[in-house]
Design a binder for these strands. Structure first.
Lengths: 162, 162
DNA sequence: ATATGCAGTTGCATAATAAAACCAAATTCG
DNA sequence: CGAATTTGGTTTTATTATGCAACTGCATAT
């Protein structure tokens, strides 16, 4: 549950989580990537309460991640489709999925494989790389604070302050 | 209320979110990656309520993402450091950050840049790639349901069922 | 015309979070 | 060294998000 909003924070991670950080959001996006389009698809797949699903879907539409419109196949019902913004969350979904496969897989194995469509093979691990495409060690990845943001002080006491 | 748990789901994304899906978890992990180690670091940086921080830190320790132990510098206080499991969440953090930079950046720009340490340059976009290292179109990424998992029915009515 | 399914909405109960006060141990200051 | 402050919490109280069940209005099926 949350009362506190991240929307005033300058950090891009916080600002992203403002939109996709609530309990069900990323699972809804996952289902949308797997082809779910209608209210009942999400509801059946997730077992989420209907009012909660209504809220989450509306939030995602407001965030521009899903678009709501009349069904493509002529049905009178509305459907929810990912926008480009939404589709570009794929790296997040892939990273979560691959981490889960490695560290917290279900006893029966994962339910879904992320693949290269053309070959049907499993997608290589999504991972930070240099411009050349060469994968990096995590220790080679840095985080630099910008000048336009207030500096952070991780010191433990006065004497630590060089 | 009893918030539904994802831990019984077979999907790796859901199982991962069980550990890092709550409101503050990923921001705590972000701070840990940026060098935060002590309770007060997280508390000051996030403005999170102390009891909530206590809960989130304990959950992350239970999940094996953070390890709690005596401080390295001799201080009697405990400190929280990322385990390998935790460090391997870097792709998730990077993907969230880069999505935010592109789609929901703050007016003053992002507060933090993710970089290649050696060169100081901005890290290339984390993105699905083939074995060769070549970046893919999102439309080339597939999701295949495993046989050990119950199939999903996205059909809209009886007639749709081939 | 009646029944069933869909996509919600509403009301109530409860769990998760926040805010504030409180506290023991550790650390810093005088 | 002793007092004051900081740290890392815990407890209490209040608020908000979620779950569950029932209800509604519309469209489709029988």
């Amino acid at each position: 549950m949350r009362t506190k909003s991240f929307s005033t924070m300058q950090c891009s991670i916080a600002r992203t989580l403002e939109h996709v950080g609530s309990w069900w959001s990323l699972l809804i996006i996952r289902d949308a990537m797997m082809g779910a389009r209608r209210f009942k698809h999400f509801q059946r797949s997730l077992g989420i309460a209907r009012n909660t699903l209504t809220n989450r879907l509306n939030d995602l539409v407001d965030a521009g991640i899903l678009a709501k419109g009349p069904a493509a196949n002529g049905s009178k019902h509305e459907e929810y489709v990912l926008t480009e913004r939404g589709r570009e969350l794929a790296p997040v979904i892939i990273a979560l999925s691959q981490w889960g496969d490695k560290w917290v897989a279900h006893d029966n194995g994962p339910s879904t494989e992320i693949t290269v469509k053309a070959t049907g093979e499993r997608l290589p691990r999504i991972w930070p790389r240099r411009e050349t495409g060469e994968p990096m060690q995590l220790s080679e990845v840095g985080m630099r604070r910008n000048e336009n943001a207030p500096p952070i002080d991780w010191s433990n006491s006065e004497e630590d302050k060089s």
